[in-house]
């Protein structure tokens, strides 16, 4: 079972590395969107500090969402998804392998880049640390929830827009607790409560997403 997980995971990572331009565009999107705000809003530091958590998190949600159609669509087109359904292993484990690969390729780079981008908003050292931590905890949740949306919209016309409509509302708790954590640092109350809630969201997503995604994939391929 572990070998099947690792096989799916490493296949996706190797394959993505050979097509790294696709993934770099997502990262570049994140950088550009975040950078537009200080340019558009102006250099007033109080304002920038206030909007920073929301801007960084919304940009991260959108960037994570942009990469979602890639999770299953290519596999669907070339027939590897069909083969995945016939693998004598639980489909949930294989789905988790794909989600883990998606996180490594989109979530982790977002978390790593965010503190650097946060400097543009004049965030302090502690806030940048919490921003990194919050994204590190929150992005797996984005990949898990996103996988459900990607599987449900598989093979539909206008799937990209539908994913947004399906997934973005489900991202709201992550957005609230994630940006709340950084706000809490500014307010001096400490971020641990928000980070715990964020982790709780992730655990719920971990408990639900593999099964929901597996069921959606089976329906999509009927």
């Amino acid at each position: 079972m572990r070998d099947a997980f690792l096989a799916v995971f490493s296949r996706d990572v190797v394959q993505a590395w050979r097509r790294r331009a696709d993934w770099f565009t997502t990262m570049f999107f994140f950088v550009v969107v975040v950078t537009l705000f200080p340019l558009g809003v102006g250099p007033e530091s109080g304002m920038l500090k206030a909007i920073a958590p929301g801007v960084l998190w919304v940009a991260a949600l959108l960037a994570a969402m942009l990469s979602l159609p890639r999770v299953f669509a290519a596999d669907h087109a070339d027939g590897t998804l069909e083969q995945l359904l016939l693998v004598p292993q639980p489909l949930t484990v294989l789905v988790l392998g794909k989600v883990a690969a998606h996180w490594l390729l989109s979530g982790l780079p977002l978390a790593l880049m965010a503190p650097v981008l946060g400097l543009q908003f004049g965030l302090g050292g502690e806030a940048l640390g919490v921003l990194f931590l919050a994204l590190l905890i929150g992005t797996p949740c984005l990949s898990l929830i996103g996988a459900i949306g990607a599987a449900l919209t598989l093979g539909l016309r206008g799937g990209g827009v539908l994913i947004a409509l399906l997934v973005l509302p489900l991202y709201i708790p992550v957005l609230i607790f994630g940006s709340g954590a950084i706000d809490a640092v500014a307010a001096g109350t400490g971020a641990s409560a928000h980070l715990s809630l964020l982790a709780a969201c992730c655990l719920v997503a971990l408990a639900v997403s593999p099964w929901a995604t597996a069921a959606a994939l089976r329906i999509a391929l009927e």
């Binding site: 070998d3 099947a4 190797v14 050979r18 590897t80 083969q83 693998v87 004598p88 292993q89």
Partner: peptide
């Protein structure tokens, strides 16, 4: 006990023939 080959080849375009087979074998256990 089943080996199914459909219309689609089930191969990843960016992987080599050998890599594709190695992953297929690993997944098949």
């Amino acid at each position: 006990e089943l080996l199914f080959l459909g219309h689609a080849n089930g191969l990843k375009d960016d992987l080599t023939v050998t890599e594709n087979l190695r992953y297929a074998a690993r997944l098949g256990g």
